[in-house]
């Protein structure tokens, strides 16, 4: 069942002192099912953050529609309407910045409940539940934000987001500011929370190895347009858009034998989203570019069911030989390393 449907979303920002427009989003369409994790990936300027902000109602889109649970949301107003309040929550990139430095994190965590008109004892009960879910002792929650590590703060931010038992949590780069170990801890937490609460996630990230852990479906964006959408294992194993292929190939995995593949290296820099030329935004960097690509944006095509690609050459990328997935190889390698040397009590 569809929980959120984003339809042909367009957002153009005016540039001050100029007639130019930053074309942040140029017709983005996707759907999120109840309880699933849907990831938006892309590099800076791809518009993934803008989508997240439009979904939670922080910005008004230029055109397009967002339908949540069957109800169209008319930008800023309806997100605060009583039936929607608390059903969509948000976690930001910088954990420190979303907490008031002068109050304990627990106080910030129960804040959303106040707006739902919940009484004090119910609030405290809910807080205790959530703290158990995010495995944070009450003593830690009573500390000020400055006394917590970034990882712990982000844990609290996740707690604050799920305290209203939302249907959807928008996570905007929640792990990018963290060290790798803290990053993995947050990902594990998100997975375990989802198992218990059946919350849907809109996970926004540029970090593909993190996305790989927890996503059901993935949507690759580039310069405000969707390049490819599909089930995670399909997009990771058999990406059909040159940009997705290049992006996957750029991920470094921590083992010397897992070299980055030579195919589809994307040369050059990402162009500025000011005055984008017509056609496919990747045309300037794409090794498979044809004159038709520069004329208009390729229409969606479905190489496999539920796997959508905006590329006229997607068939050229179909893999004749099934190359082993680097991520899977690393899985095996890392498991072998991790199994060895574990103390008796857990092994």
């Amino acid at each position: 069942m569809t929980l959120l449907s984003v339809q042909d979303l367009v957002k153009h920002f005016p540039v001050s002192g100029s007639s130019k427009l930053v074309k942040a989003l140029n017709g983005v369409t996707f759907e999120i099912e109840r309880g699933e994790t849907f990831s938006l990936v892309g590099e800076s300027g791809s518009g993934k953050t803008t989508v997240g902000r439009a979904v939670v109602g922080l910005i008004e889109a230029t055109s397009g529609a967002i339908v949540f649970d069957g109800k169209p949301m008319s930008w800023k107003r309806n997100i605060r309407s009583p039936e929607l309040r608390g059903r969509i929550q948000f976690v930001f990139q910088e954990p420190g910045e979303s907490f008031n430095p002068r109050e304990p994190v627990a106080a910030a965590m129960i804040e959303p409940l106040k707006y739902l008109g919940m009484n004090r004892s119910d609030r405290d009960r809910r807080l205790a539940e959530v703290l158990e879910l995010i495995r944070m002792p009450m003593a830690t929650a009573m500390k000020l934000p400055d006394d917590l590590s970034p990882g712990m703060l982000q844990r609290a931010a996740v707690g604050r987001a799920i305290i209203t038992r939302p249907d959807l949590v928008v996570l905007d780069e929640p792990t990018s500011a963290l060290d790798p170990t803290a990053r993995a801890e947050i990902v594990d937490l998100l997975i375990s929370v989802q198992k218990k609460m059946e919350t849907a996630y809109l996970f926004i990230s540029h970090d593909l190895s993190t996305v790989r852990f927890l996503t059901d479906r993935i949507c690759v964006m580039y310069l405000g347009s969707v390049m490819e959408t599909g089930p995670a294992e399909k997009v990771f194993l058999d990406p059909r858009h040159p940009y997705s292929v290049g992006l996957m190939a750029s991920v470094l995995l921590p083992h010397p034998s897992l070299k980055t593949p030579e195919r589809m290296k994307l040369e050059g820099e990402i162009p500025s989203p000011l005055d984008l030329p017509p056609g496919c935004p990747l045309a300037s960097r794409c090794p498979l570019v044809e004159p038709a690509c520069r004329e208009r944006m390729p229409l969606p095509e479905y190489p496999q069911p539920k796997h959508l690609v905006h590329c006229i050459n997607h068939h050229k990328l179909e893999r004749a030989d099934v190359v082993s997935d680097r991520f899977e190889t690393f899985h095996t390698l890392s498991d072998r390393i991790l199994r060895q040397g574990l103390p008796e009590r857990v092994a």
């Binding site: 790798p180 170990t181 990053r183 993995a184 801890e185 594990d188 997975i191 190895s209 790989r212 852990f213 995995l253 921590p254 991520f327 690393f330 899985h331 890392s334 498991d335 390393i337 991790l338 199994r339 040397g341 574990l342 857990v346 092994a347």
Partner: peptide
């Protein structure tokens, strides 16, 4: 070193093994 293994575990895919180390 166990810490080196912890660092690698951050990239590993099996949450159970990771948890065992962490």
């Amino acid at each position: 070193h166990p810490y080196s293994i912890n660092l690698l575990a951050a990239f590993a895919h099996s949450p159970a093994l990771r948890e065992a180390w962490w």
